[in-house]
Simulated assay, not measured.
Amino acid sequence: MRGRTVTKRARRPWIALVLLGVPVLLAVLGPLVAGDAEPRPGALPSQPPGAGHPLGTDVLGRDVLALVLHGGASVVGSALAALAVGTALGIPLGLLAAGPRRALDETVMRTMDLLLAFPGLLVLMTLAATGHRAWFWLVAVAGALQVPAVARLVRGAALAPGSRTVVEALRMQGHGWAYIHLRHLARELAAPLATDAGGRFSVVLYLLASANFLGLGLPASASDWSVLIERNSDALFTQPAAVLVPAALLTALCVGGNLLVDRVLARTRRTV
């Protein structure tokens, strides 16, 4: 029994890498090898897989395989861009709140609490109603909604007893704010931020996919996987590949990312 358990544990990283690697590779290499996704002459909408269309056609008569190969870039790119926005804004705010000024800490944290009160989809619905449906707005809002969580994580790590003692010692030695926060604390925060980024990627991906599925983000003609699911949902029983293939890729991306984060956490726990 113990040998079987060890074998299963040894395979888990490969499962995570395969689940995460397939959609990521499609996102990176897909647009380079994909053909034209526009409807070909004589192509009918919602056709099952057949000659010339390995995955069939969508409701507009476009080749589903070409759409899938094109659509991954926007999914992964949007999630990474929103994650970068949240991290870039959350880290300095968290470090600012962890400083010696109590009033500044309260101001930053109460502002973060206010941002946490806004439901993400409601904000995106408001933007869509005002005509702000561009990729920029979708990524900016999704990234801004991650700032409070990232700022809280950074503040908590910077205020940990061990970090606080070292910071006080460095401050007594005459080191400035930039040296303490950008050199010392940056190294201390690298591990928790990397771990959080892995799980937060799935959160951002879920928010962006939900927005696109509800028609709040990218236009209906986009080849994004979540848009494909929404556009072809009515043809699920007549042309299931147009819905199930992008849905499976989105699921693999989320599950693979979560499994990889869990694996990293388990390995870190064993080494501590």
Rank of each mutant, 00 (worst) to 15 (best):
V261D: 09
R102E: 10
A160M: 07
L114H: 10
W14M: 07
A98I: 10
P23Y: 03
A149E: 13
L260Q: 09
S74K: 13
A88F: 13
M1E: 14
G143L: 09
D113V: 06
E230G: 15
A79E: 02
V24W: 00
S226C: 04
A134W: 14
G174S: 01
A235R: 01
A235V: 00
V33T: 00
A16W: 08
V28P: 03
V33W: 05
L244F: 06
V243P: 02
L89Q: 08
R231E: 01
P246A: 02
S163L: 11
A73S: 12
G71I: 03
A66Y: 02
L122F: 15
L214P: 10
I15V: 11
V203A: 09
W225E: 03
A186W: 14
A266Q: 14
W137D: 14
A186Y: 12
L170A: 03
Y179G: 10
D262M: 09
H181E: 13
E106W: 13
V264R: 13
N232S: 05
T111K: 08
G198Q: 06
V6Y: 12
P54H: 01
V75D: 00
V166Y: 13
T57R: 04
P148W: 06
L228Y: 01
L182D: 11
M172S: 15
D58I: 02
G35W: 05
F118E: 07
L228H: 00
R155E: 06
A169P: 11
A73D: 09
F237I: 12
V22P: 07
L26G: 07
S233L: 15
L17K: 03
P92F: 00
C254E: 10
V123K: 11
E168N: 12
C254R: 10
A211Q: 08
I229K: 05
P23H: 01
W225S: 03
C254A: 15
N212T: 01
A241R: 03
R62A: 04
L80M: 05
A149R: 14
T130W: 15
A88E: 09
